[in-house]
Amino acid sequence: TRRLSELRVIDLRAELKKRNLDTGGNKSVLMERLKKAVKEEGQD
C-alpha cells in the first residue's frame, strides 16, 4: 500500500468515498480523515 502522503487528492477522495466518508476539504483534511478511518478499521 502506498503511503497516504503519496496519494493525490483525487485518490484520497476515492478512498473516502469507498468508505462512505465525507470527501470535502483540502488535502490535509482528507488525509487526516482517511488516516483516522484506516486506524479504526485496523482495530476491528
Rank of each mutant, 00 (worst) to 15 (best):
R2T: 13
E6T: 13
M31C: 04
L12T: 03
M31V: 10
S5L: 07
S5A: 13
L30G: 08
I10D: 15
E6H: 03
D22L: 03
E6I: 02
D22F: 07
G24F: 04
E41A: 09
E6A: 05
R2G: 15
R3C: 04
T1K: 02
R33Y: 01
R2Q: 13
I10K: 15
Q43V: 11
L30T: 03
D22W: 01
L30R: 06
L7W: 12
S5V: 07
T1I: 12
N20I: 02
R3E: 15
T23K: 01
L30M: 11
D11A: 03
V38M: 14
R13G: 02
T23F: 04
N26S: 14
L7F: 12
L30D: 07
K39F: 05
L30H: 08
R8G: 14
V38N: 05
I10R: 15
K36Y: 05
G24A: 12
D22C: 10
E40W: 06
R2Y: 06
R8A: 15
I10M: 15
M31I: 07
G42W: 06
K17Y: 00
Q43I: 09
L7G: 09
R33V: 04
V29C: 08
S28C: 05
V38S: 09
M31Q: 06
K17G: 11
L12G: 01
G25F: 00
K36V: 11
A14T: 03
L4S: 09
V29Q: 11
D44P: 14
L21P: 10
S28Y: 06
K35P: 10
V29I: 01
G24C: 13
E41G: 11
R2N: 14
G24H: 12
K36N: 09
E32C: 06
G25M: 00
G42K: 15
L34T: 09
L12I: 11
D22K: 06
K35Q: 13
D22Y: 01
E6F: 00
L34M: 07
L21S: 02
R33T: 09
N26D: 15
R3S: 13
G24E: 12
K36A: 13
K27W: 06
L7C: 01
K27N: 04
S5E: 14
N26T: 13
L16F: 00
K27A: 03
L7R: 07
V9P: 10
I10N: 13
M31E: 08
A37H: 10
R33M: 02
K39L: 10
Q43M: 08
G25T: 02
R19V: 03
A37L: 00
D22V: 04
D44H: 10
L16Y: 00
L12W: 01
A14Y: 06
D11M: 00
Q43A: 13
L16D: 09
T1W: 03
T23R: 01
V38P: 05
A14E: 14
S5K: 10
R19L: 10
K18R: 13
K17S: 13
N20K: 10
D44S: 13
N20R: 06
K18L: 09
V9T: 13
R19Q: 07
E41Q: 09
R2L: 11
V29H: 02
V29L: 11
M31T: 06
E32T: 10
G24D: 11
G25W: 00
K18C: 04
D11E: 14
D11N: 00
N20E: 12
D11K: 00
G25L: 00
K39Y: 07
T1Q: 13
K39V: 12
E32F: 01
S5M: 07
L30F: 00
R19G: 04
R3L: 08
T1S: 11
A14D: 05
R8F: 01
K39R: 12
T1V: 06
L21K: 09
R8K: 10
E6S: 06
I10C: 15
K17N: 06
D11F: 01
G25N: 00
E32P: 02
K35M: 10
K27T: 06
Q43W: 08
G25A: 02
R3M: 08
D22M: 03
K17D: 11
G42D: 09
R8Y: 02
G25P: 00
R19W: 01
Q43F: 02
R3P: 12
L12F: 04
N26G: 14
L30W: 02
K36C: 08
R3W: 09
N26Q: 02
D22G: 08
